[in-house]
Simulated assay, not measured.
Amino acid sequence: MFTLRGTWMRGGTSKCWLFNAVDIDPYIADAGGLDAILTAAFGSGDPRQLDGVGGGSSTTSKAAIVRRSATPGIDVDYLFAQVAVENRTVEWGSNCGNCATAIGLYAVQAGLVPVGNTVTVVRMRNENTGAILAADIATPGGRVPTEGDAAVPGTTALGVPVGLTFTDLAADRVSLLPTGEAVDRIELDGKEYRGTLVRAGAPAALFDASDLGLGGSEPNDVLGLHLPVLVALRRQAALRMGLSAPDEPITHAIPKVGVVGPPRDYRTTAGVDVDAADYDISVRMLSMMAPHPAIGLTSAVAVAAAATVSGGVVATNARIGWPGSIRIGTAAGVLDVDIALDSAGLLHSVTLRRAVRRIATAELFVAVPSPILAKVGS
């Protein structure tokens, strides 16, 4: 057993354990060692993660290793880990926007970046995907915030307002659409499903809800009934997008997969009625092997990017209220997203606003398998 220092933070609708690289690097020699340390710390292998700090769900079983960056123009690099709940495995192929907002505030609070007199901008690089993000935090008079009154759909908890911008998302149509098609048609058991496959924020496969007999605004328990089809569609999308080879193990992290439909009246999981006129596109996403309670920020970026693809399933179903934005109707409520295009009309950046709070700083007592302990002690 060894002691690992960490910081527990909520970013939007996710909770994430953040580890400074200087604290965790001495304990790992390779990715296998890091997998073992994180799954032990989180208590994975148990659906309740009872013997660790995981929360028993995909949105509360996340970690990131943060370090000062040696890259000019970048303040911090971070490696994101989606720690499995029931299995002792870690997915390394994706990013998490909610955790990225938490990392932005963490970098300011931990002194990893100099604090500005009005606003502090933290430039971050996600090591998993190479994505560049910028978090902006108000620091009036050079004061570092510890609490705030910002709110987001999916939780009543308040936090420090943090703006998160994903930049340089699609230099051209080829980089945005890995298959080159606005609509990919995937056949399963004699039925065709239409989807737009994009790389922006995170690789995502967004399917027309009507092909599954859905409208796109259903409660998550209804979406859950279609889980086997969506998992099969994700596998086929991964093959088409070059994210996996036919003989490789199936990953449940990427691409992100979900359904989209036109705006309709619906009721959120909190019992709030949402009028169809108050948003632009219905979206329901999976997270790992279950319906997402809201939407991951990287998935929201993918939806915003797909909305710029003429003829794609998102653009076809969306009813855009005004240029430069899209309002996404999720199971938890409506998420506002700002979209910026460059002079050529290509997607340049997507900005979302979240609420962040530091919950705890702690010393975790981690009991790892004996082969890893031997490595730690060497």
Rank of each mutant, 00 (worst) to 15 (best):
G296N: 05
G11V: 03
D168Q: 12
L4M: 11
A151M: 10
G180M: 12
G56Q: 02
G215E: 08
V356A: 04
L112D: 02
G56T: 02
D189M: 11
T129F: 06
S61D: 00
R199D: 00
I28N: 02
V368I: 14
P255M: 07
S244T: 15
V301H: 01
L18R: 06
T268H: 09
A245V: 03
A41L: 12
V174A: 11
N317M: 02
T71N: 09
N95G: 05
L297K: 01
S61A: 10
D275R: 15
T139V: 09
N117P: 10
G163R: 15
E363W: 13
D208K: 09
G56Y: 07
L176D: 02
T330E: 10
S310R: 13
T39M: 04
R10V: 00
G271C: 12
L197P: 00
R48W: 11
Q109A: 08
N126Q: 13
D77T: 06
G56L: 05
A362R: 09
V231G: 05
D336C: 03
S370M: 09
D23A: 07
P145G: 04
G12S: 11
G324K: 06
T298R: 01
D184S: 14
G311W: 09
A245R: 14
V350D: 01
M124L: 15
A374G: 03
G6C: 08
G377H: 14
Q82M: 11
S325W: 07
P153A: 11
L158H: 13
I137H: 10
M1T: 14
T60R: 13
A134C: 13
R123S: 12
T361Q: 14
N87H: 15
Y266T: 14
V66I: 12
G215H: 05
L206H: 06
R123I: 04
A84W: 04
L79W: 08
V108H: 06
R123L: 05
T129P: 05
T13E: 01
L223G: 08
D275V: 14
G52Y: 01
G242E: 00
G12R: 06
L341A: 00
A171R: 15
L79Y: 11
A134Q: 14
S175N: 07
I326G: 00
V113Y: 01
T129C: 03
I103Y: 04
I103D: 00
N128H: 09
T129G: 03
A21N: 04
R194F: 14
A302C: 05
P263D: 02
I37L: 15
V229I: 15
E147H: 15
A135D: 03
P140N: 04
D280V: 09
D342M: 02
S325C: 05
E363N: 15
M9W: 13
P153T: 08
A171S: 12
I250D: 00
D338Q: 13
A245T: 11
G329S: 06
I339D: 00
I339W: 01
F166W: 10
A107R: 07
